[in-house]
Amino acid sequence: MTEQLLVARDLRRSFTSGGRHVLALDGVSLTIAPGETLGLVGGSGCGKSTLARVLTRLMAPEAGSIAFMGEDWLALDGARLRAARRQMQMVFQDPLAAFNPRATVGGVIADALRIHAVVPRAERPKEVARLVERVGLPSDLLGRSIREISGGQRQRVAIARAISVRPRLVILDEAVSALDVSVRGRILELLVGLQRETGVGYLFVSHDLAVVRAVSHRIAVMAAGRIVEEGPAARVIAAPSSDVLIDLIGAVPRLNRNPRS
């Protein structure tokens, strides 16, 4: 057993919404090993996006601990936090909101390489070209504005930016949910291929159980701020124990060759 990449223990976080107190995270614990994908599924409002935000430190938990690469992730600050942030990247559903709207495709990736000093300055253009090619984008896109390209292309740029700094963990929050089905397949293959090459770990957050199953080694199911079941992907889906997973399995659309027969 290798050392865990990420160990979260008993995370708690609540919100007040419309005068009601909502426990978005009610004692969540999870681990992710190097080279492993943990799929996190649940319906809207179950707390899965809050968990992604707490793990990436976009939001502070009220209680609990997170160890990332053996360090107390919540206690890091200053230069050590900046250095550690390089190792944990994130990709969201709508990459447009995550980019400087005036940036170009090449500029977005070059900025990440510059900020984290991944390669010497002279090698930056070559590295940008390599990354753009790796995510399957044509090189003539480099000078284009991030707003002029399609949603699928933009999601590839977001992935190229995330992997450019050679992180150990990438948190993907509904990263393929808004994409066309044909583009989605290629992005999933890209993510799996990158994991084989680099040993990166993924937390793959989605409401789409079929997609989660296709890419995850283990699956955790969330409902009402808790992880209600967790285990190897095939086993969890073959023998669901929680109501929410049974419902999620039932809601996966199947290609029906004989409708209503």
Binding site: S182, R184, L188, V192, R213, V252
Partner: peptide, 14 residues
């Protein structure tokens, strides 16, 4: 490109 619960996973066994 359809993915459902019968689609072979993209990853190998854990």
């Amino acid at each position: 490109a359809h993915i459902d619960l019968a689609t072979p996973p993209l990853i190998g066994e854990a």
